[in-house]
Design a protein around this nucleic acid. Sequence first.
DNA 1: TCAAATTTAATTGTGCACAATATATTTTTT
DNA 2: AAAAAATATATTGTGCACAATTAAATTTGA
Lengths: 149, 149
Amino acid sequence: MKADLEPNLLLDEQLCFALYAASRRLTAVYRPLLDALGLTYPQYLVMLVLWERDGITVRELGARLQLDSGTLTPLLKRLEQADLLLRRRRESDEREVEITLTNAGRSLHERATEVPRCLAKKLCMSADEFVRLRDELKSLAIQLAPTQE
Amino acid sequence: MKADLEPNLLLDEQLCFALYAASRRLTAVYRPLLDALGLTYPQYLVMLVLWERDGITVRELGARLQLDSGTLTPLLKRLEQADLLLRRRRESDEREVEITLTNAGRSLHERATEVPRCLAKKLCMSADEFVRLRDELKSLAIQLAPTQE
DNA sequence: TCAAATTTAATTGTGCACAATATATTTTTT
DNA sequence: AAAAAATATATTGTGCACAATTAAATTTGA
């Protein structure tokens, strides 16, 4: 079947809705796995960043996840309450807040390794399909990024 | 380059983050266009459904968008406040609430036709690429749907 | 040097998402 | 027909997202 070239207002033909629905569905599949770790999905993303590089600032975290302090500040406070990380002003520049994992935060990494494995099973997708879809989405996001000037 | 077969915890290799980030980016591109119509992105989705078929219930709307009454009820109340639709209990079954477009709600359709056209430009994607990505996301969502039993 | 501009987080306010529960109505079962 | 089960929506509460504003620290530059 030939692709319809006319942009229209039919829900089922929108890329945006397909993206929005798939993203929510995938998050819903993560939910029970992350519940077991005591994390929400955005909190899990923050932990992924910190497991890669600890001691970064809120700004660096935000740049990585494309989230601002309005989202991150309360989220990080909750993770601090859960004893997974510490927030403290940097001495070198008091504007910045440095995020440091606690021992509990670091040890959660081990239990979290089950999460991607468990998800890979549910995805029923070959590694090549996985990589191709992921990279298409990444370039879409880059292409839609605000014009940098 | 060969696809990495090992599921891991690196942010940039996660499909979920690519999906989450792309979805938020695309919504952000819609935002100024929808602001002009006085709609948020989820409100726009509701209007898409109603422009296709008016007089449906909250349940049918929810089935279509995969949203529950906890999300839809307040959203629909806001659209009612904006004079775009009416909510009223059905006489045939008082449990159901039927959503009907007002004249203002119907006439918004015409102005909205600009939205997908405007977006198609920003996407810089061939119709075939567009359709393929959209349909991959749709089958991903279907595949991740809760096991129906 | 010191005033202006910039940078970084936090705060405030709105609007989703979604789980859990409540309420009212309808249908089914006994 | 009455009780029980199922259905549809609303409500409550938590946690994002994100725009707009505020506040404090730092950098820039006249």
